[in-house]
């Protein structure tokens, strides 16, 4: 579904991503793990079109989307939930969800998806008219994911969904990610919480200072000595 081929990304003079290649097969959950500053978010931002790679190619659904602006990529069914949620804090929960469906004009379909999303996130239904800036961190994460689902993504990019959340909430969020994937959406998941990420992923890549150092099935990586020492606390 998504193939990243040898991309190099720069922030000014800083070479942030040094020749990364990834493969996200249709229907799977692929995790990208690594410590702070390894380049995980930059990789996602490049895929979703917020940044441009200097060299390399990004293939999505058989189409070259390298350098296509972010707002056009969303229309192709590739949607990113940014790190730190980035909900529109000055708008209500409903308005946020409506913006998620910005590119769609099928009123009935939107209404149906809105219901489905509220079923998945019942807490958002309770708060649908609340200004989203007043939601808790976990609720904001749910809103950010729900908003992305409103665009009917085929591939969902999730950037640190567990960030700053209590363990119980992290579990809940990860269960929802599994559910979303079971519904047919492919997921590329970026996480510092390698334990949780590997527990739901099919496949994973380990990123270190802009390079991929390890890759394999989630089970392989979870049992690998290196990964356990560096990311799993033992």
């Amino acid at each position: 579904m998504l193939r990243v081929e040898d991309i190099n990304v720069y922030y000014g003079a800083i070479h942030a991503i040094k020749g990364i290649s990834l493969d996200v097969p249709d229907g799977e959950i692929v995790a990208l793990i690594g410590s702070n500053g390894a380049g995980k978010s930059t990789t996602l931002r490049t895929i979703s079109g917020l940044m441009r790679p200097k060299t390399g190619r990004i293939m999505y659904d058989g189409e070259d989307i390298t350098g296509v602006p972010a707002h056009k990529i969303v229309g192709k069914g590739l949607c990113q939930v940014p790190e730190g949620r980035h909900v529109f804090a000055n708008m209500t929960v409903m308005e946020n969800l409506e913006l998620g469906a910005y590119l769609r004009s099928d009123k009935d379909g939107i209404a149906k998806d809105m219901e489905a999303v509220f079923e998945k996130f019942p807490r958002l239904l309770e708060r649908k008219d609340q200004i989203s800036g007043t939601l808790s961190g976990g609720e904001q994460q749910m809103l950010a994911m729900a908003r992305a689902l409103m665009s009917r993504p085929k591939l969902l990019l999730l950037d640190e969904p567990s960030m700053g959340l209590a363990p119980l909430l992290v579990k809940e969020i990860f269960n929802i990610i599994k559910e979303i994937n079971a519904g047919g959406t492919t997921v590329l998941l970026v996480e510092q919480n390698a334990n949780m990420a590997l527990s739901i992923a099919d496949k994973a890549y380990v990123l270190e200072t802009g390079r991929i150092t390890l890759s394999g099935t989630a089970a392989e990586l979870a049992s690998s000595e290196e990964v356990r020492k560096a990311y799993l606390g033992g």
Partner: peptide
């Protein structure tokens, strides 16, 4: 209006707005 919502979204958080498919 939808256009107005897009305006408010861009003014609040341009990157997040782009990820919604809004042409800034």
């Amino acid at each position: 209006t939808k256009a107005g919502k897009a305006m408010r979204a861009v003014s609040f958080d341009a990157d997040a707005a782009r990820l919604m498919g809004i042409n800034i």
